[in-house]
Amino acid sequence: MVKYISKRLLYMVLSLFLIITATFFLMRIAPGNPFTSEKKLPPEIEASLNAHYGLNKPWYAQYGDYLVRIAQWDFGPSFKYESRTVNDLINDGFPVSLALGAEAILFAVAIGILLGVIAALRHNKWQDYTAMIIAVFGISVPSFIMATFLQYIFAIKLGLLPVARWDNFSNTILPALALGATPMAFIARLTRSSMLEVLSNDYIKTAKAKGLSRGAMIMKHTIRNALMPVVSYMGPLSAGIITGSFVIEKIFGIPGLGSHFVLSISNRDYTVIMGVTVFYSILLLVSILLVDIAYGLIDPRIKLAGGKKGE
């Protein structure tokens, strides 16, 4: 277990190192320097700005500084908005994004499992078909289109829910639905197929034979085993929620980290793009690692020590 985790940690650090290096060098070859704007700066001011941000040092020194700063959890300044750092943006926006993401995940997991279980228990009946049509719909419609249609129908046409902003619970419903729709569909499909697989096992027959009630059989013997693939999907799920949040936050005008990120992309605010990318990468890699460890802990069939899964 310890060996497995340390091995995974090593890969995580290497991946992270790769993305930090890639962002650093990509930003260096990006056109223009951070202070390029409509107004031409006097050379003295530009020189002093460069000195302030350490841009007059050779690239390897800058690179070294950058690595050290990341290690100290400092993601650097914003070049477009003076006196705002990427850390400010993260502290400011991430709690909002986290709240939205958590609500979306909750929705996706709860409804996805429910649909999947119903579909499997009513295999090849209308409930199964309905659930799978919903799932196919959720997978095929990109989240930004889903968000816009939800906004158009429920907020603009019917006026049931607020169009945008982020004040109270009613503001969160539409964004969470739009953000959670695609993962919900994936979870429903996963749950359904693994439920069907579990239901065909001999121990289910045994449970039936010994006269266990249907409810007890489903709760005790089926769902727990059927949910293993869903747990392993939590890693990709968090990636989907993060990238999805860029789009959803922009559409619904939510002041989260995602919308800050999108804004920095359209402003070409390179340091913010760089810092937020690195932050998201850390977040993602850590959550994927946690999911994998959790998976190993719940499922005794997986031997973590070997380290090589599925071979």
């Binding site: 056109p31 390179y270 793009i273």
Partner: peptide, 21 residues
């Protein structure tokens, strides 16, 4: 491949598009 696999796909794509145009 394992190390590259850990790099978040969409983030990297965004980064490349920002830089390369």
């Amino acid at each position: 491949a394992d190390i590259l696999y850990g790099v978040p796909y969409l983030l990297l794509v965004i980064l490349f598009m920002v830089v390369l145009g």
